[in-house]
Design a protein around this nucleic acid. Sequence first.
DNA 1: GGGAGAGTTGCCATATGCGCAACTGCCATT
DNA 2: AATGGCAGTTGCGCATATGGCAACTCTCCC
Lengths: 285, 285
Amino acid sequence: MISTAPRRNSSGLARDIEILEVLGGPEATQNEGLGVIQVAQLTGRDKAVVSRSLATLADAGLLVRDEVTLGYRLGARLYALAARTSESRLVSASRSHLRRLALSTRETTHLCVLRGGNVLTVMSELSPHEFRTTGWEGVTTAAWRTPSGRVLLSDWDRASLSRWYDEHGRDVAIVGPTDPVMARTGFAVLRTPPEDKAVVTDFESLLDELARIRSRGYATLDEELELGVVGASAPVRDLTGRIIAAINVSAPKARIGERLDGLGRYVAVAAEELSRQLGVGHGVG
Amino acid sequence: MISTAPRRNSSGLARDIEILEVLGGPEATQNEGLGVIQVAQLTGRDKAVVSRSLATLADAGLLVRDEVTLGYRLGARLYALAARTSESRLVSASRSHLRRLALSTRETTHLCVLRGGNVLTVMSELSPHEFRTTGWEGVTTAAWRTPSGRVLLSDWDRASLSRWYDEHGRDVAIVGPTDPVMARTGFAVLRTPPEDKAVVTDFESLLDELARIRSRGYATLDEELELGVVGASAPVRDLTGRIIAAINVSAPKARIGERLDGLGRYVAVAAEELSRQLGVGHGVG
DNA sequence: GGGAGAGTTGCCATATGCGCAACTGCCATT
DNA sequence: AATGGCAGTTGCGCATATGGCAACTCTCCC
């Protein structure tokens, strides 16, 4: 990533995107959309501006307005665009691999990509143990704190990493749990890990960990992000060898025990299979 | 009193959306994205304007730029917006389709999703014939025994199916009717179907049935689960093409008679409409 | 009836973005 | 090595779209 932050103008677009984010957030998904005033409050802007922006976005088809309640929600055009992203194609190609992994490990698996300083979970397959009906799709986490994020950074050169770390190294946020109660209470926003568990604390230790990941072919996380939770991640590569995604398995430490490294090797094999399929998948429909 | 089309301003946004559409088009999704000049030609705008707009959109995360080829493509932020709202969107979008289907067939319709080894009925619309006040929302049934469950399994690969069947193939329970009387009396817990009606008896016959479902585009059930009851189910797909839910119509055999296949085709059309609304067909093709 | 809340619109100063043209880099060709 | 062409970025002046305030409508509810 580049962006020595040349401060684009983008006044209008920034506001529009902020509005889209709000309407994609937990407040909007529960009810029948959000009203002008609500969006104005959530974005901290004048209601007149928000009113006009919402109308324009709805005209463009990115939003849909409920004629009765006057509430806005995300529109069909946005979903159509989302379906054409490369992530969308990656997800459909990865599904069976992820599902198989979830069934054989009996744990929850994720497919993650890097977005800015964060790791974006684009797909989840829940373990049979899970009772939740919704996964973590769309949720983002500070990249350098998660095994998937470290995997995704592990093929960067040092200069790029340094720039990236200057910009994002202090990020700690876990953004966007879809449960509104969690969001409101802030429960999931950040749980400080025990000091002694932290493997990565600064740029140098991040480099060390990335080197370890490269040599092993996978990353593991032992209660570093959350007590009682362990995980393993491995890189998915496109046909040029670049790391484009990471497969992750997260589980309670109690169920994994001493087998964490075994899990890492297993995840790595699954990621390699997926990579191979992506390499040949170009001709296949 | 809206929609008198009062000539919105939308100068910048219209252009940005046009650019997004172009980058969602076939020219961009195939190769390594599109360059500034190409987008300028496709939108008929000055390359300077396009250059700035693309940079701004990329800064916002709606676009991603390939460092090497300098090509732009749609970014993960779009996907994240859509993915985060997919479940709530399914429920809200389904209601009108289910209701319409219930009215036109004059039978009870359900929306079902897979949870572990069971089918969970998320939403029901009762037929005009029904007098019960409670639907089957929240009721779960062994997946491989129901048409909806088979539909939901029909896009799984064989390896995953095999694992899944090892774990859940012997489940027979019908769990948790919301009617407390039914629950207490155990009336709905399990009615053994007539032997000769069973289409799926083991893993191989399940595979056969799934193949039949794939080729027809819908599943039917003829007194297999309960005497005198027939049903038809069809798949609902999300924007990546994955089967995320099934629409089901259940009815007394006496009222359907020979028209079961017709009902299946009819349900399949409704499910396709719903899928299209969720974003399928706008995109991958 | 009137008051509160939600949403829209008019107005004006100002910041924004358009469009042209000049500029930088890169690569192939001679 | 010089040249020309192509891709992309940037500087600048001017028109205009946009933000913020306030006034306004509409509906709902007491």
